[in-house]
Design a protein around this nucleic acid. Structure first.
Lengths: 187, 187
DNA sequence: CGCAATGGCAACACACTGTTGCCATTGTCC
DNA sequence: GGACAATGGCAACAGTGTGTTGCCATTGCG
């Protein structure tokens, strides 16, 4: 063997390099989808990303930090509200959005992390984001006189869980079920 | 040190011994409550139970098997239905039961295991047990003419998630919220 | 009494975790 | 162009947990 000591292996290095963040995020997503959050190994993420373990640990000290990075883009979808013109329409759109997000690998990762003591903060932040959207939506409906505050309270209780739980059970609601649910809440 | 080779340490051994099952179950519960399902270590369970690791592995080849054993007694509570005389009473009782069970260490262990690919079977079995109860309850209400099949469908969709999801978020519903929810479903 | 069932002990190879010290590369600023 | 700071790779580390295995000890039951 010609003892070639060190060489660049097509990897960009030096200041301001961003490929690491992207490839690690992608790798984490892949691994999360493959083995779930509990079995997620920083080691495997690094290998999949084609990056050194050291590097991963430098940017993300914990699995939870990694989860937060992975999940962020999906959470941003909750920042713009559905606005279909009617309360029921908004409601259905919101339910569908929650369903869609929680079906994504990112969403499933969040679900898997829900039971983990040290991921609580991330999971809670994600939920708060969802709930903020529902709050805006329901309050708007009250303002427009489309629902009473009493309905708002119950809807608020029931909406997220009704969508999320079937998702956890891996038997998501279909569109007809979403609509039927919305019809009962907003008769 | 007088090199005392082997001695019984107050431990019952031989055929038909049952202390192992009980102490391991208790230890597993303790550990589950302490570190959650993901970090549950067979090693720690064995140590806490005062039992050899070998022994634990012999009876429970996987963490999931251990979970199933731990959780079984709680699931049995779903096998007898609430029967208060009215549909709404039954409904509230059922919701309260789900809430109570999922607040127990056993229930929290199940929630934590919900995202784990290899625990899916156990989690699903547990949910099916719950759902079976709800099914019986709602069908009985339909038979008695207290609700329509349409309400049954929606209630069926919404009940479990509405209770479980806040539990996952660690902000369980209070009694007033349970009743309000029941009142909307069964006006 | 003898045996089968049960459990303990010790050791093994393996995998993942965090961490650390040292070196290589590269963009940027002077 | 040269120096430097930022960035990342490599290798090694001790520590912990995982399953598994071979061997031995105890004990209830026929």
């Amino acid at each position: 063997m010609t003892d070639e000591p060190r060489r660049t292996r097509g990897v960009q290095r030096g200041p301001r390099s961003t490929h690491v963040i992207e490839s690690v995020r992608a790798a984490a997503l892949t691994e999360l989808d493959r083995v779930g959050f509990a079995r997620l190994a920083m080691d495997a993420v690094a290998r999949t990303a084609g990056v050194s373990r050291t590097t991963v640990y430098r940017r993300w000290p914990t699995k939870t930090a990694l989860l937060a990075t992975v999940v962020e883009p999906v959470l941003q979808r909750y920042d713009t509200d559905p606005d279909t013109g009617t309360a029921r329409g908004d409601l259905i759109a919101a339910l569908a959005l929650i369903r869609a997000n929680s079906a994504l690998p990112e969403g499933r990762a969040l679900i898997a992390a829900a039971g983990e003591p040290d991921s609580q903060a991330v999971v809670r932040a994600a939920n708060d984001r969802t709930i903020a959207m529902l709050e805006r939506l329901l309050t708007r409906a009250v303002d427009r006189g489309e629902i009473t505050t009493d309905v708002r309270t119950v809807a608020y209780l029931a909406m997220q869980g009704t969508v999320m739980w079937p998702q956890i059970r891996d038997t998501p609601l279909d569109d007809a079920e979403l609509e039927r649910f919305a019809r009962v809440l907003l008769p």
